[in-house]
């Protein structure tokens, strides 16, 4: 477990503790410590600076820009909470939040279940297990743009492969990307196809840490497959499950799939049925140049996301193991 904890192992911690200042320290030791500090910061500097400028600063800036109206020429006027007031009456914003909400509620459990199922399926070795694992992961390797193009082609109305396959069932006329009722569901299914391989790998890594003996012991005790899963595997998999849950939720709201796939598949249509909140924010920012308004919406989404992950953390106690 030591490699998995965020904090240092105790040994390093002891060493990191600064000695009492009034105790006599030899000049050599002090010079050595200063050299170490200088080296430490120099090694850290490029990345620390880069993260500060290209991640930290934008995080703070989002909240500042949200208070301004920015025009197309880069002129800023302070607007106080105007952007947030606009949001209240922006029906398209609320409908995009709803789209994202439905998308999350559908995608997260589906990806979780499919990913876990696949991991259990390919956990044990059998002839060709390597190819099977790779096959499940392959959709995650190609870009979201390519994923979008592939599915757009397969789902072409009437002539596409999907329509041909469904024709015998009398479903050949369905327009998977063209009808407002089906488009969001289609987008969910494609997302699961894309994400499941990654989730499978995370679960595989988690499963490898569960001692086989525990399950074998349960087997000897006469536990069936399902009993072994619910009583041994599932409880021991809690930290992994928690990670997957948080990761897929955050990813479904603000991950790249919330933008790239929508852009390629539907551009938010039909009738805004697939306009996720991230996609709508992008449109406001870069099609209509409302950078301030877009920032304000982003801050609200981040707030909601922090709340959601907080609730998950509280209800699952951070995925920690049950106390005995």
């Amino acid at each position: 477990m030591s490699t998995t904890s965020v904090t240092d192992p105790p040994r390093t911690d002891d060493r990191a503790k600064p000695r009492r200042p009034h105790r006599r320290v030899s000049p050599q030791a002090r010079a050595r410590r200063r050299r170490e500090a200088v080296a430490g910061w120099l090694f850290l500097l490029p990345d620390a600076l880069g993260l500060l400028v290209f991640v930290g600063l934008p995080m703070v800036l989002a909240f500042v820009v949200a208070l301004y109206k920015v025009d197309g020429f880069g002129g800023y006027t302070f607007a106080g909470l105007d952007n947030y007031r606009t949001m209240l009456h922006d029906t398209q914003f609320w409908s995009s939040l709803k789209v994202t909400g439905i998308y999350v509620v559908a995608t997260v459990p589906l990806t979780f279940a499919v990913g876990l199922g696949l991991a259990l399926l390919v956990r044990d070795r059998f002839p060709g297990v390597g190819w099977v694992r790779s096959a499940f992961f392959l959709p995650n390797v190609i870009s979201l743009v390519v994923v979008g193009l592939i599915w757009q082609f397969l789902l072409v109305d009437k002539r596409g492969a999907a329509a041909r396959l469904l024709e015998p069932l009398g479903l050949g006329n369905l327009s998977f990307l063209g009808s407002p009722k089906l488009a969001l569901g289609t987008y969910v299914v494609i997302s699961v196809w894309f994400l499941m391989g990654y989730v499978m790998l995370v679960f595989l890594a988690g499963l490898q840490d569960i001692p086989r003996e525990l399950e074998d012991a349960a087997l000897v005790d006469g536990a069936g497959r399902w009993q072994r899963f619910t009583n041994v595997t599932w409880p021991l998999l809690r930290p992994t499950s928690f990670f997957v849950l948080v990761w897929t939720t955050v990813g479904s709201v603000t991950g790249l799939q919330a933008f790239d796939l929508v852009f390629v598949l539907t551009k938010g249509g039909p009738a805004n049925a697939t306009s996720t909140v991230v996609f709508y924010i992008y449109e406001q920012a870069f099609t209509f140049s409302n950078l301030g308004y877009a920032s304000a919406m982003t801050t609200l989404v981040v707030l909601l996301l922090v709340l959601a992950t907080g609730v998950m953390f509280a209800t699952t106690r951070g995925g920690r193991f049950d106390e005995e």
Binding site: V55, P58, A62, A285, T298, V302
Partner: peptide, 18 residues
């Protein structure tokens, strides 16, 4: 560590400005 969960769409607008 605090930047671990920050994805591009979240900081897109301010990052663009930077």
């Amino acid at each position: 560590i605090s930047t671990l969960l920050v994805s591009l769409p979240v900081i897109l607008v301010p990052l663009f400005l930077v």
